[in-house]
Write a protein that binds this DNA or RNA. Structure first.
Lengths: 249, 249
DNA sequence: CGAGTTCTGTGCGGTAACGAACATAATGGC
DNA sequence: GCCATTATGTTCGTTACCGCACAGAACTCG
């Protein structure tokens, strides 16, 4: 498998939106500890129960948080990209979680050693607020995923998943096999084939062997369940505080 | 409807395990602002998008966090009782969430005004650590709920739900109609009737018109999916820090 | 270019849960 | 004690998804 490693164009940490929202003094305190790392497809940023050594601030790419059950069945519970970070259990105090974090679309990140993150977080500065608000957005996403799993069809969930993924990419092409999408959604591969076929027939997407191209975003948005909009709206709302901390008051 | 108001036995705030885990000075700072309130069945502690005026520390009873969708379909995403609190979005910084919090089993709580909670949280004392660890346990519960919704049968989910609920009660009797359980699980009422019938036939529970009695906990634990154990283990693990902050190191 | 691998399409029987309609049974108010 | 109400039980046709098996198509590596 030629894991098309992400183009290693020089990245700035500020391409990560959490880092970019930090006031200069806060940023400068952690900046020396930030270390660029590639995020190759399939890389696991942490495993269930493991103690985290670093947190990751993606500048591009997509990271999935997923649960794998004893029998191997799995489901994605949330997804993040350059708008967020990976490793919330570090500052939440648990040190580990029962989930996995896997790179779903290759990219790059800056990682920060656990100790540096904790120190800055504990100091109660703006980073703390940013991370907590981001965590709340993640919680919303997880809750909405739970509800969507319960009530919506595979096709609707696929629409939601596609939109959430493409929102985190600069292009509108996604490199992802139906098999992998099925793992994320926790459904059969054939179910994805069928749903994706319907979307292609409707002219909303085009795909071939692991390449999915979004052709008609408004069309897809008309077809998706409300879950996408809820997650999107809440993420935007919480991120808006990041620009102007007193906007929401 | 004669909402059987909970027995108003005099309660101490320390029956809430988060408050009980606070060091004395921290507790004494917030104690003057704690106000006892009953939690009658069906009371909504907050509604989607509403700004929270108080957070609640239950001393007994059960509170469900649930999502209600546009078409009225609903699903419970997490549940808490005297081991936790209600209103995490306040200190997470979002001020509101898209979910609802509803009293599922009547009890009592102490409420704390939003401003007092924020002040104490921002001061970075032990309350902050306790609340963040509790939030992480809640996140685990939500994630496991999402996975369970996807992969497990109604009967397994009912087992999980029963155990999680009864864990939060002092008795082993639950006052809850099948209709309401169905709302929580996001399934049909008939599905609950059927699953509950099977559990009763197996001698694990007994129920009649809104009263469910747990007869055989080991038996039920053998029947439940792994999801219950994961949530339970993670809650216990995170709560263990509360006794001795350096235990987990 | 050819062989093996990976990805996608399709068909088929099985099943869990759904939606709706209706029957029975317990409870509480009067 | 009776009746309206609320809770539970049962049936039945429908549907979405599952599990499996296999065929074809596209890529890739030698």
């Amino acid at each position: 498998m030629t894991t098309r490693t992400a183009a290693s164009a020089p990245q700035s940490p500020l391409q990560n939106q959490l880092l970019a929202a930090l006031p200069a003094p806060d940023y400068e305190r952690i900046q020396p500890n930030l270390e660029p790392v590639p995020l190759p497809l399939g890389m696991a940023l942490y495993e269930p129960g493991s103690r985290l050594g670093y947190v990751y601030f993606p500048t591009e790419g997509i990271v999935s948080l997923l649960y794998v059950m004893e029998d191997g069945a799995s489901a994605e519970i949330a997804v993040t990209g350059s708008e967020g970070m990976v490793g919330i259990s570090l500052f939440m105090g648990g040190e580990s979680t029962p989930s996995r974090a896997v790179v779903q679309s290759a990219g790059n990140a800056y990682r920060l050693p656990a100790a540096a993150l904790k120190k800055e977080f504990e100091s109660g500065g703006e980073l703390q607020h940013l991370l907590l608000r981001f965590t709340q957005a993640l919680i919303t996403q997880m809750a909405q995923t739970a509800v969507c799993n319960r009530h919506h069809s595979v096709e609707q969930q696929l629409c939601r998943w596609l939109l959430l993924s493409i929102d985190r990419l600069s292009s509108n092409e996604l490199v992802m096999t139906q098999e992998l999408i099925a793992n994320m959604l926790g459904v059969r591969r054939e179910g994805v084939t069928e749903a994706a076929g319907a979307l292609q027939d409707a002219g909303l997407i085009r795909y071939s062997r692991g390449h999915i191209t979004l052709l008609d975003r408004p069309g897809l948005e008309r077809r998706v369940c409300e879950c996408y909009a809820v997650v999107r709206r809440e993420s935007d709302r919480l991120a808006a505080y990041n620009q102007s901390p007193f906007l929401g008051r």
